[in-house]
Design a protein around this nucleic acid. Structure first.
Lengths: 347, 347
DNA sequence: GTGAAAGCGCTAACAG
DNA sequence: CTGTTAGCGCTTTCAC
């Protein structure tokens, strides 16, 4: 019952040629007579032959799969990135090996370690922490071994590995500035975790907007989040429970935005009437639900595609050298109304 | 700059033993003297050696990666499945290769074809269509080659490949029966695509509930959906625009539920007041947003884990034979209020 | 244009 | 306990 996989010898025998010729036909590597080509092709067809990639890779010491390491497989943001990555990958005939770290540095190290034996073509990673020396060293080690690495969305501190990131500071700055222009003076901020570079950048953008507008930032208005719903929920509750609560909140990522909304609902605060909200990263679903949240948006899928393309370019192109390139993608402000100064200010 | 990867010969030389001994130490395959073991281990440590998996796999003609083929990488449902799959996979030391078909049968065939050269350890797939002969044949071919396949969530018609599915018919039957018990007589249904087995099953459950309650089903109440938001949105609009609209709607999957909600919002229908809703598959986000939708729920992550475990069991265990086993997981009704008979019936 | 043969890095008998 | 050797399936010189 259990058939064996056909190998190159069987094809050679069937076609009456040597395995070298079969190999040549398959790779178009050098000219083969029409007759031989014909017979090989027929044999392949007849025996339903598909070459063994592992053998091929071993022989050429190359690889056709790239490793993708994400901190949270369930976050829609990473799924969009993945969408872009896989679509670019199979355009180029590569397969994607997916790993999830669950925002756990130790898991990340283990995964990075176990990936070594795969001899990957390249690695795309959104590292858990910007200040993780171990991860940085492991990645640099990959680079030294000739396996290119691209950091996606989150950068690593003091590290010259190529990266694709977003104008986090700038986007947040513009968004908060816009809120200020609309009359907001008391603006709350649910930040990202301090070990995340985008988190810090967005916080910086917030501070800069306030500073440039000459507005003071009250410490109790800046709440430390972790890019997750629950923490953001709690912090928003605390924020809105202050004696003198803000009129607007800036939320540092998609999940955080959910946390804010949940808190608003819990407190019975109506968006646009009692409180304003501006988020980082768009959430398509919310538009269907009549939650018109203004956001700092970016083309996430394109970001994933670009990461993949950049990785491959590094492999194939002349620029084998790690250039430490930093590709910063733009953001776009999408105004949907939630940023307006609340109609009912008094509470 | 570009270091070479260390191989087993260098370790052997460094440790002053043969490659066989190195191999033995690494695989614990047979006893090696303490001294040799020690020296090998030191050499490995010193040279930072990691064996080449491709070579190992080629030599043993085995594989450590499984292919996962999903129709929609962006749908949170599949992400939850993937979560379960990857977590079970790395528990067992396997890697996951992810492919997306975008609900396109042709892409599915291409992917399935290109996967052949990977000589995978196994395949987990949610096929696009239940009646796709080509996909069925390709999968049966994999089975014949000794590569186990597990169908996840969607079954294939007339096919004895192992599968993990849900009690779709039953779950829907219970949900709709509950709505009837609460007083609903006119219930609309946004179905799944006709080529999807779960879609059909859920539709069947709906019909059975109506039949057993002795209620007629009006053709115009049953709207054909495609498990996507936009189609569901349009159909729900049409449904609610009927001269005599239903008092409740059953939505066949998570995305469809979003479509319904969007339509309700568009029409200004308030959930619980103007219309009732029951959905298949829970959407965690909605609870944070004060949308308390009653749903037929299931443990999606566990479903993914089980698929992975079942696959491996097939590989390792005695039951090499494809048993054509059908594992049907239970569903659970979660009542949150959206199923109640609307307070304002007249419209 | 084609075949023989030497690897790619590792495992697994088979002798010692 | 350990080393030698023959593969695993394919690519790639190197002669003819």
């Amino acid at each position: 019952m259990r058939r064996q996989e056909t190998n190159i010898y069987e094809i050679a025998k069937e076609a009456g040629v040597s395995i070298a010729t079969v190999s040549r036909v398959m790779n178009h590597s050098s000219t083969v007579s029409d007759k031989s080509t014909q017979r090989v092709l027929e044999a392949i067809e007849k025996l339903n032959y598909v070459p063994n990639l592992a053998a091929r890779n071993l022989s050429t010491s190359s690889s056709t799969s790239v490793g993708v390491v994400f901190p949270d497989i369930n976050n829609p943001f990473f799924m969009q990135l993945l969408q872009g990555i896989t679509s670019a990958a199979d355009e180029m005939g590569l397969s994607v090996l997916l790993f999830g770290t669950d925002e756990d540095m130790n898991r990340e190290h283990k995964i990075l370690q176990s990936m070594r034996e795969l001899r990957l073509r390249g690695i795309i990673i959104t590292p858990v922490s910007a200040w993780d020396k171990t991860t940085r060293e492991m990645l640099e080690n990959y680079e030294a071994l000739g396996i290119p690495v691209v950091l996606l969305d989150r950068e690593l501190d003091d590290c010259n590995i190529d990266r694709i990131v977003t104008a986090d500071e700038e986007g947040t700055f513009l968004a908060v500035s816009e809120m200020i222009r609309l009359g907001h003076r008391k603006i709350g901020m649910i930040s990202g975790p301090e070990f995340s570079r985008p988190g810090c950048e967005r916080l910086n953008g917030f501070y800069r907007a306030m500073r440039e507008a000459g507005l003071p930032v009250r410490d109790e208005y800046v709440r430390k989040g972790d890019f997750r719903v629950n923490r953001a929920y709690c912090e928003t509750l605390a924020l809105c429970g202050l004696p003198d609560p803000p009129t607007a909140v800036f939320s540092s990522n998609n999940l955080t935005t959910y946390g804010c909304l949940r808190a608003f609902n819990k407190l019975g605060l109506k968006l646009g009437e009692d409180i304003a909200l501006f988020g980082f990263d768009d959430i398509e679903e919310l538009n269907w639900l009549d939650y018109h949240i203004s956001v700092v948006s970016r083309d996430v899928t394109a970001m994933g595609e670009q990461a993949m393309r950049h990785l491959l370019q590094r492999v194939d192109g002349s620029n084998q050298q790690n250039s430490g390139m930093r590709i910063c993608l733009p953001t776009e402000l999408i105004m949907r109304g939630s940023e307006q100064f609340p109609t009912a200010r008094a509470r």
